[in-house]
């Protein structure tokens, strides 16, 4: 599953940089606790969260994540968008809630 596949199949809103569509996503992590993400998310995962503040970028960057998807129609804060752009991390958003989005991505990855 590539970032391009996700864009094509889920049509998320894009808030940050235009991501490299060829980036391969091998794992997805769902959590709203930032220490949990730091401790347990795989390197290079895609991250599903409802947190919208600037710290999600530093956490994503630390885990070498290419993209974060915000759920429940949440929009990132302005400084989050700026920092994501400067760190080269794509920020997406969707009206889906975490379970539905995770299910769709799970099927794309393992279905």
């Amino acid at each position: 599953m590539t970032i391009g596949d996700i864009i094509n199949q889920l049509s998320p809103d894009s808030f940050s940089i235009e991501p490299d569509r060829d980036i391969e996503i091998k794992d997805v992590y769902v959590s709203d606790l930032l220490s949990d993400v730091m401790a347990n998310a795989g390197e290079g995962s895609l991250w599903i969260t409802l947190q919208t503040h600037i710290n999600i970028v530093a956490v994503a960057s630390m885990k070498n994540m290419p993209a974060v998807i915000l759920v429940n129609g949440r929009k990132p804060e302005g400084e989050t968008v700026q920092k994501a752009a400067s760190e080269g991390i794509a920020l997406f958003g969707t009206d889906m809630h975490a379970f539905e989005l995770a299910g769709r991505l799970y099927n794309m990855l393992h279905g």
Binding site: L33, L34, S35, D36, M38, T49, H53
Partner: peptide, 15 residues
């Protein structure tokens, strides 16, 4: 509410 303060900080540092 920001997703910090879950009581994982010190244990993560130790681990």
């Amino acid at each position: 509410e920001m997703g910090w303060g879950a009581g994982m900080g010190l244990p993560n540092m130790k681990k």
